[in-house]
Design a protein around this nucleic acid. Structure first.
Length: 506
RNA sequence: GCCGCGUUGGUCAAUCGGUUAAGACGCCUCCCUUUCACGGAGGAAUGACGAGUUCGAUUCUCGUACGUGGUACCA
């Protein structure tokens, strides 16, 4: 029988979840859903010194907004493998149990070196021109550990209460080969792998031990994480092997990194393109810094998710706009790229624009209404719905709607100079005054009636320049469809605007 | 420094030894439009470099360069 597919997203609550992390969660989620499996949220809070208040809650809320909802885990309801916080799981004694097992089988050992002693060792080795100083098969003989010390000395140290860590005993010069679903076979020589700390002196496991123990205990079938973990994967393979569980090891998938749009390096917390790096607003209590989110920048969650999914993955055909259901249907790790992808702000905006157009005017109005109210604008829903219809074609963000169509609500005080200097002449005032009168005489005020009036009136009044009408009524050279816009603004307001504009102009 | 991973237009990318090397974003031109957009049609722009394997390499191998990640009692 095939094992039930189970994937986990396992962030550490050391800060806001950035978009790279969201993508990792997304890919895991898509794969789990595609195979009718489980998606678990596990919180890896083993480093109490870096714990940030509010980070865990943020992660949960961010996943919720994105629609990447675990069916099991912190914030989403316990399944059969609770608890889902490593700090709580430590109380179960599971990490200790596995670490003891490794010690008993001779694959791990106790190390009493203080951090000062470790620093000293590294300095000494550097001075001796050793390029990569590390705790390993050759250096451990000169350190304070249960392999170098006599049994007597070790038990004395333990009795005296000396703090110690548990380290993995990595063999010398051995080829470690493992398979990655995205990258294929990867081979590393164990000489490059150091004796990783498994259990810290405070009794907390490190990531290396903890995630393996939990993946085993939680029956995880696929371990998905960022490429930055690739170098430590050999250590993890060794742990599974020494535990006698290599054949049950989850399939590994190391995702390519998301890189900065310009220049080099991976995405940082802020980008000069102005686009957010976080899904929703993030305020770091510890540093006092705030970061804007995609949600608050006027992105829709479906657009954000779609954009992220296509950063490092594609469905194999030309489709770029895919719903969550389609993403689930099409997703596979085989189609994930190996190389890092530069984040493209322009394309990101384009994605949101596509989704903006797909949403109905009523849906958009629901999102836009509160934003208008913040500006002190109260309009009835039918007005806002029509406003959305007229503005959405040119908007990239919901938050742009007001800015893009402020003239719907506020009469102009200045008039686009470029247009006016080019198109306004001594005859204009009389022409547009007459036009105003004609408009004022219109018995009905609809898009069609306005349109017709403009067509009819030209032989009599001469050339009417639409852009001039636009500037007189809105002040700006660009904007929504002219007749539709005039219709929505309303007869009285349009006539007022024209009159006051004409009064100001010569 | 060492080790891992990567390298197709400016960016995202398809191709799984044989193509005029798709498509998308952005950019440019034209068309549509009595305004603004949308839309449509075109255009410029690409296999890092060097060897090898092969009848044939973007595709396989090696080297170089470049990029990126790791090198903690952090994840």
């Amino acid at each position: 029988m095939e094992k039930r597919v189970r994937l986990r997203f396992a962030p550490s609550p050391t800060g806001g979840l950035h978009m790279g992390g969201v993508r990792t969660a997304l890919f895991s989620y898509l794969f789990a859903k595609k195979h009718g499996g489980d998606f678990v949220l596990r919180i890896e809070d083993t480093d109490q010194t870096r714990y940030v208040n509010g980070a865990e809650e943020y992660i949960i809320n961010a996943l919720k907004w994105c629609g990447i909802e675990p069916n099991e885990g912190v914030g989403f309801g316990d399944g059969s493998y609770a608890p889902y916080r490593q700090s709580e799981r430590k109380e179960l004694g599971i990490y200790k149990k596995y670490s003891d097992k490794l010690i008993e089988s001779g694959h791990a050992y106790l190390a009493f070196d203080t951090s000062e002693e470790l620093d000293e060792m590294r300095k000494k080795l550097e001075a001796a021109k050793v390029v990569a100083p590390q705790y390993n098969a050759v250096t451990r003989q000169n350190m304070k550990n249960s392999l170098a010390l006599s049994a007597d000395e070790v038990s004395k140290l333990i009795e005296s209460g000396a703090p110690y860590v548990v380290r993995l005993k990595v063999p010398r010069n051995e080829e470690i080969r493992f398979h990655d679903i995205i990258r294929g076979w990867v081979t590393v020589n164990s000489t490059q792998v150091d004796d990783k700390v498994l259990l810290k002196s405070d009794g907390m496991p490190t990531y290396h031990l903890a995630h393996i123990v939990d993946d085993i205990e939680m029956k995880i079938t696929h371990a998905v994480r960022g490429e930055e973990w690739l170098p430590s994967a050999p250590s993890h393979v060794l742990i599974y092997r020494y535990l006698g569980l290599e054949s049950e090891m989850p399939l590994l998938a190391h995702l390519p990194l998301i890189l900065k749009p310009d220049g080099n390096g991976k995405l940082s917390k802020r980008d000069k393109s102005g686009l957010p790096m976080f899904p929703i607003n993030w305020h770091d209590e510890r540093t006092g810094e705030s970061y804007i989110g995609y949600r608050e920048s006027g992105f829709t969650a479906d657009a954000f998710i779609n954009m992220l999914a296509l950063l490092g993955w594609n469905p194999g055909d030309n489709r770029e706009i895919l719903s969550k259901e389609e993403l689930i249907k099409e997703f596979s790790f085989e189609r994930v790229n190996k190389s890092g992808a530069k984040f493209d702000p322009e394309k990101t905006k384009w994605f949101n624009q596509q989704y903006l157009r797909m949403h109905t005017n009523e849906e958009l109005a629901n999102s836009v209404m509160p934003l208008l109210e913040e500006k002190g604008i109260k309009k009835d829903p039918t007005f806002v719905v029509e406003f959305c219809r007229l503005v959405k074609e040119k908007a990239h963000f919901i938050t742009e709607f007001y800015e893009l169509g402020s003239y719907f609500f506020v009469a102009p005080t200045t008039f686009d100079e470029k247009v006016m200097t080019k198109k306004w002449n001594e005859n204009s005032k009389s022409t547009y005054s007459k036009l105003t009168e004609k408009l004022n005489a219109l018995p009905t005020w609809t898009i069609d009636s306005i349109h017709h009036l403009f067509a009819e009136v030209e032989p009599e009044l001469g050339k009417i320049d639409m852009q001039v009408v636009r500037v007189l009524t809105t002040g700006v050279a660009g904007g929504a469809q002219l007749f539709d816009m005039l219709a929505l603004i309303g007869k009285e307001e349009v006539i007022n605007r024209l009159n006051s504009a004409l009064a100001k102009l010569q």
